[in-house]
Design a protein around this nucleic acid. Structure first.
Length: 173
DNA sequence: GCCAACGTTGGC
DNA sequence: GCCAACGTTGGC
């Protein structure tokens, strides 16, 4: 099981939008960067957990948790000339771009801002800090724990969606 | 809206 | 294969 950070511009697709989906799932398509593509195609697996990050806003940061429910499969929006993500280099026979499906899990009680992340030396190696343009990033278990603790979720991710955050709260590591 | 960082494209 | 030009991302 691995951890990831997915970035999205909330004006395009926000964590709340994911929450408001009827089944709270979303196809994470439109990624057009080879390094991010490699992660989606080869590494992102069902059951992996995702930090949902809002970019391009006055206070960017991690706002919630999602879960991967389907691993990498060809991004069909690349095949569609009508799509803004159309790419003639990609075809069903030889797909270039890949997507995954994610499910809403829970919001962070307190969003963790980029400023806070930059301010924590233990998070200095996150790509977010010095390679901010990568839209799909791996997160180490240590970074995961730290960010959840900073967000007021020190006890870990609630097992069920919908986030009853009472009960099993334990001390941060 | 500006600008720095960085990825991609295309000429040679 | 190099490198300049260009486009995009994203913080501020």
């Amino acid at each position: 099981m691995a951890y990831w950070l997915f970035k999205s511009e909330p004006g395009c697709f926000s964590f709340e939008d994911l929450h408001n989906r009827p089944r709270m799932t979303e196809q994470w398509d439109g990624v057009r960067n080879y390094q991010a593509r490699n992660y989606l195609r080869d590494m992102v697996k069902p059951g992996d957990l995702v930090l949902f990050y809002h970019s391009n806003i006055p206070e960017p940061g991690v706002v919630g948790i999602a879960e991967v429910v389907r691993g990498g499969y060809p991004d069909h929006t690349a095949f569609d000339p009508e799509s803004e993500h159309f790419d003639p280099k990609s075809s069903p026979g030889r797909p270039v771009w890949y997507m995954v499906d994610v499910r809403y899990v829970a919001p962070l009680p307190r969003p963790v801002t980029l400023e806070q992340i930059r301010g924590n030396l233990l998070l200095a190696r996150m790509p977010l800090v010095n390679r901010s343009r990568l839209s799909i990033q791996p997160v180490t278990p240590e970074e995961w724990q730290i960010i959840l603790a900073m967000g007021g979720m020190g006890g870990g991710v609630p097992s069920a969606a919908g986030g009853g955050e009472s009960g099993g709260e334990r001390g941060a590591p």
